[in-house]
Amino acid sequence: MLNILTRGLYKSNPVFRLMLGLCPVLAVSSSVHNAIGMGTAVIFVLVSSNFIVSLIRKMIPRRIRIPIFIMIIATFVTIVDLLMAGFSPLLHKSLGLYIPLIVVNCIILGRVETFASKNKIIFSVADGLGMGFGFTLSLVLIASFREILGNGTWLGMQIFGSKFKPAILMILPPGAFLTIGLLMGLLHWIDHYRTVHKHVHSKAR
């Protein structure tokens, strides 16, 4: 159970490991505020879709499961879209096109298809939460790098003195690609280092 909850954070992190749902990661990570908004929306859609699919998993005929999943996901995405437009119009404006595009975010269909359609409700909800948080965490991490370096702020708070000249490139599109590429490289490097380390240890024994 705990494993299901936590594996989305690092071991099978949807963004860095599974490379799923990269479009919104790149697009809305220019500020931490947007990243949190997007992450919340994805968590809501992921948990709700996992819950519903797991609830009716025995009633869905195998051959038409994909269209049914897509309809369920699209319904929850529209709900988020409408709620955000009504209660947080500023966030809705800055996320814009990328809210309806959660429908085609591979994380959601992927989790629903590989996990929720085969597992009990409680595990499916845990999986949704874990993966959702993993996604949000990666998004906030990337956004932090970009906002701090590109705008000199974090969540709108001034980090450096007024003399700091931000590298605007970081909050422009190229910055998104560069940040994610370097972070992914760093993660690979850590993995490599750890396996080499383990190897040395086991040999020493």
């Binding site: 269209p67 049914i68 309809m71 319904t75 409408l82 437009a85 009504g86 119009p89």
Partner: peptide, 25 residues
């Protein structure tokens, strides 16, 4: 029949949410 049923349920729930949020928007 199953697909139509699912479609009707989602459209129904969406129109309900839409009604609530429309005046707010």
């Amino acid at each position: 029949l199953i697909l139509t049923f699912v479609a009707i349920i989602s459209a129904g729930s969406l129109s309900w949410i839409n009604k609530i949020t429309k005046s707010e928007i």
